[in-house]
Nucleic acid binder design. Sequence first.
DNA 1: CTGTTAGCGCTTTCAA
DNA 2: TTGAAAGCGCTAACAG
Lengths: 336, 336
Amino acid sequence: MPTSIQNVAAQAGVSVATVSRAFNFPDKVTPATRELVERVARELGYVPNASARTLRTQRSRVLGVVLPTLLNPTFAECLQGIAAAAAAGGYAIIPITSGYRLEEEERAVNLLLAGNVDGLILVVSNPSTSTALERLRKAGVPYVLAYNRHPEHPCVSVDSEGAVADVVARLVLLGHRRIAMVSGTLAASDRAQQRYRGFLRGMADAGLAPPPLIEVPFVETAVDAIARTLAAPDRPTALVCSNDLLAIRSIRAAHLSALAVPEALSVVGFDGIALGEDLTPALSTVAQPNSDIGRHSVELVVQALAGGIALEPDASVLLPHVFRAAESCANAPGFA
Amino acid sequence: MPTSIQNVAAQAGVSVATVSRAFNFPDKVTPATRELVERVARELGYVPNASARTLRTQRSRVLGVVLPTLLNPTFAECLQGIAAAAAAGGYAIIPITSGYRLEEEERAVNLLLAGNVDGLILVVSNPSTSTALERLRKAGVPYVLAYNRHPEHPCVSVDSEGAVADVVARLVLLGHRRIAMVSGTLAASDRAQQRYRGFLRGMADAGLAPPPLIEVPFVETAVDAIARTLAAPDRPTALVCSNDLLAIRSIRAAHLSALAVPEALSVVGFDGIALGEDLTPALSTVAQPNSDIGRHSVELVVQALAGGIALEPDASVLLPHVFRAAESCANAPGFA
DNA sequence: CTGTTAGCGCTTTCAA
DNA sequence: TTGAAAGCGCTAACAG
């Protein structure tokens, strides 16, 4: 039975307005009154009712977060950053996962909007095809996309395309010529598309013909699919993976194919999940500042909220990534 | 500018009560009225205001979740189960991470309570020392502990102690005699304590003297600490790890010590994170039904909520675990 | 079956 | 500096 402001007021012998002020504008009441109210409130275990406050002020001080999944540590790390920044700004968060499904993204946005969130951070499958974003814009609720990149939306991301092109260039320098890319379903993610584009560009820049993309729709069959490619006589000597989880599965596929990593096969990931550094072999990867992406996203919407201004696409920011060179990547076999 | 029930009523030419009924008790209005209301609501993009509803009904249909961290896939997997079960029961969730810190656990509970959650699922460091639980019980909000195990609280967990004792027995059967345990700070987690107890029991049952616990307080130094133990001439031939993340680091430590896993060193984890199956070597581990633990926890509090009854400690349930035999564990060196 | 109305707990003018 | 009172959007008696 939560105590209400009424009880505190009665017990303290002041009006509810005074109790409210004592909490929200401590300077607008006499120090004596304030202390009295605070003491009584503490004694009664009074906690302001968030719903009532939200209803009255039309601000919930809650941020909604829509993520594909928490099972990929990338997003878990990002969420950690979001949570920290939100807390620092006096906001609570309510995260919902969409499982990379469009209708779930929409459901999540609806749920969050109904829940009176003041703003949203979201990672969508593909901004171009997202119906949820349209609804969001119409609702007039500030939002920013994390990881996604799109000219019509405010985004916090890294240059995925450039990063992968660089990776290819590095591999070429290490003597690799047969370089293949491993990706999840391209259609399901704008990031996968950007990364693949970077792969194609990198190969073109090196004057190499890109082999067919190894597209693995289901994680369950990923290892098999990759192993199949590794069984070919002209198998690649290096695999560029669209994310770290795929890189880990690539390493497993190599193992099952009796190929040593990195001696017989180099593997490079993308994301920079913390776990990658503890693996054996340690994962070479394009490390994104996952936590910062979250933090920065929050800061953008909090600023918009504070200023009462809309968030425009030109608020977008590209955060720096770094290539984390580690054991899973080395010279091509036979390369001096 | 979210449309209110008033607007829908006016536009449809009915009273607000009718609109409310059309949404909450569709059978209590004429089909014609219901369709009219639904159509108008859709046209106006009406979404019921959650805060107003909560304020009025005193039920938020929101469950609070307190977890140590999402960076450990164990809890991310559990949260996935929680989210699914909550959604199925018509509840939203708001998860908060506590970073294994007591004061954060308390902060989280306070925040959640202020946020009007109807019930809570929590994973605390140690139920015995948790001040948050006392506050919770007093608040009269139904809650259940996940993973924790304590006679005075309703808990959903596995028999950690028995599981580890079994692991030791298995290792002994494989010829291992020098078996050591790797754990995080014992004081920080009741699970770590239970698992260690299981280790001691397993060793005692086998008539073996347990070597000192390898306690690694900080993840950053875990690999070094473990490697140090592996450098000793009477180094263990098997490592029982209190969780999968430690097992992964143990494998890395072995690698840095030029010890092959499992040929020179067997490593067994605990938790059963999905990733473990894709690693090389694939992780031997005590697999907990992480998702089910979450699901089951939710079901307990939802039932309590529905029945209006308190949740007693005797509602606790022990879920089955399975030993997942995989590549990281094998015969002791030289054992036929 | 439908409408009127009180009030959930809080903030915020407006007066005193 | 403080208090009285209106009202945020909704649901649930209670009437009709």
